[in-house]
Design a protein around this nucleic acid. Structure first.
Lengths: 161, 161
DNA sequence: TCAAGATTGATGCAATTGCATTTAGTTGTT
DNA sequence: AACAACTAAATGCAATTGCATCAATCTTGA
């Protein structure tokens, strides 16, 4: 127990932290400059838009997005405030509810995807060959132990996002 | 302009975001469980401890750590409040100041490194061969366009941290 | 069937962040 | 010297986060 990491592992750790923070910052800033809300809104709208009949339980959204329960609750508050989603009652489970994306929500999601895709291309895509990107995925997956779910299961949906 | 990213690039982006957030969360939580302050404190203490005579200008710390100016200012406030650093007047430039690490600061930095190193090993090191870690660094560096500075310049110091 | 325990979602409160601005001091130009 | 432009650091304020807890409902297993 308590073995020390190799220099290589430590470097990988450092770069993982620094590079993602830079890249994320750059992408978020691009979106903001074009007047769009934070990425988390996009993620939520995407999940909702892909769900059957455009609705999800908050708890499902929470699991997809890997964020804490109270974050989900407040994110939904904001989406609802902006008219991007509505809360609907859930008859199966009266503790719960459904959150349904609105037309405005779908529209925003699509518009954001344009800007978002361009930003990904600008800050990731054009710096990496497809082969390198795949290799990077592999290596990251070794760390993640399951980045799975989310993206993989609905590969078909990607082109339409 | 405005070309769309490939599936591979998009996947790499997604994994970069998700994996670092998981790994960071896991490491931070390990540290917290052992009663240590946030990682940012460690980073700052490390920078200070490596600086000649253990002191830096806030603006230098800011550049090393890649955080906004006001964050640095407040981080220093906290370190000073806890007796881990002291503010010293800067005669060369009276707008500025020096921040000097205290003995308590150096001690905490060393203690944190034990826990931190173990956490890196647990969440990164043991999941990746050294060769894979190096490859990961390379790929991330392609994105970062300069993760450089910080770590690379003072490789000698690493074993002693 | 009923109590114990688990799950869903919201929320009060304190701590932290982000933004914009302020204060103070420095530098460069004429 | 005088002024404009710039840099260093702090801070007020609003927004966001994290934590703990709550209320309501469900599940279960004796």
């Amino acid at each position: 127990m308590k073995r020390k990491p190799s220099i290589e592992a430590t470097d990988a750790w450092t770069r993982l932290m620094r590079v993602q923070s830079r890249v994320l910052g750059a992408v978020e800033q691009d979106l903001k400059k074009e007047g769009f809300p934070p990425l988390a809104w996009y993620e939520a709208l995407l999940e909702l838009s892909l769900a059957p009949s455009g609705e999800l339980r908050p708890v499902e959204l929470e699991r997809q997005m890997l964020i804490p329960q109270y974050s989900t609750s407040r994110l939904i508050d904001r989406l609802v405030d902006e008219g991007l989603a509505v809360r609907r009652e859930c008859q199966k489970d009266k503790r719960g509810q459904y959150v349904e994306i609105t037309e405005a929500g779908r529209t925003l999601q699509k518009n954001m995807w344009n800007a978002y895709a361009a930003a990904i291309e600008r800050h990731v895509g054009c710096k990496l060959s497809d082969a390198d990107a795949m290799k990077l995925c592999e290596l990251l997956d070794q760390l993640g132990c399951s980045c799975d779910g989310a993206t993989a299961n609905r590969r078909e949906a990607v082109s339409s996002r």
